[in-house]
Simulated scan of single mutants.
Amino acid sequence: MDVFHAYTYSTAGWLSLQSVPLIAGPSMIIAMLLDESRPASAMEIYFARSLGISLLTVAALTVMLTGTIPLTSSISSPVTTENSDPKAPYALPTLMVTSAFHAVAAFYAYTWYATGGQGTFAVGVAGHALLASVGLWCVLFASGDGKISRRTGADKRTTGFPFANSEAAKKKAGKGL
């Protein structure tokens, strides 16, 4: 499994893990958030369950739109050209949106952790920050196939900036003689 699929499944799992208590026990979640003891109102229960269902929907959309689960009914593999990405066409935009979501959620959880100091917010910061950093890594390094040279095995899109490859320059200068 590559990093891209690991990120996709981790995002879906993390969002699903957050949605289960909101759907299964909204009264318990609301009671833990309140300072005074009172029963949860119908509106609070509705919003908690709506948020839980929304998180499950985003988790399912992330898995489907990134191409992790193929949406075709044919069993044979789709024919792709050399320059086309075998992932779904919405994989990179979905990756960017979910990475931005995790970054914003990590920042928001950190602000709550900094003001209240509760350990549960630290867990939220760690989970969202980890997924945001893996998503950023995927956007930067795992979104293209690269142009690998058959002769040298190096990526042809790289340059020598800011560090020049002096050994390659010496070999190139020696060939001309």
Rank of each mutant, 00 (worst) to 15 (best):
D2I: 08
V3P: 00
H5G: 12
H5W: 06
Y9E: 05
T11I: 09
A12W: 01
A12C: 06
G13A: 08
G13D: 00
Q18S: 09
S19T: 03
V20T: 10
P21I: 04
L22K: 11
I23W: 03
A24Q: 07
G25P: 00
G25V: 04
I29R: 07
A31H: 07
M32T: 09
L34F: 09
S37I: 08
R38T: 06
E44F: 02
F47K: 08
F47R: 11
L51F: 05
V58H: 06
A60C: 09
M64S: 15
G67A: 02
T68G: 15
P70V: 06
L71A: 14
I75W: 10
S77G: 13
P78M: 06
T80V: 09
T81A: 11
E82M: 11
D85G: 04
P86R: 06
P89W: 08
P89K: 07
A91V: 02
L92T: 15
P93W: 01
L95E: 02
V97R: 02
T98R: 05
A100G: 13
V104R: 04
A106R: 00
A109R: 04
W112K: 15
Y113V: 04
Y113Q: 10
A114P: 01
A114T: 08
T120F: 13
T120G: 14
F121V: 02
A122I: 09
G124T: 05
A126T: 08
L130P: 00
L131E: 00
L131H: 00
V134R: 02
L136E: 01
L136C: 13
L136S: 13
W137M: 07
W137P: 00
L140N: 08
F141N: 08
F141P: 01
A142E: 12
G146R: 04
K147T: 09
K147N: 10
R150C: 06
R150D: 13
T152D: 10
G153V: 07
G153Q: 05
D155K: 07
D155E: 11
K156T: 12
K156V: 10
T159F: 07
N165A: 11
N165Q: 08
E167S: 09
A168Y: 11
K170S: 11
K172L: 09
K175S: 15
G176L: 14
L177F: 13
L177E: 15
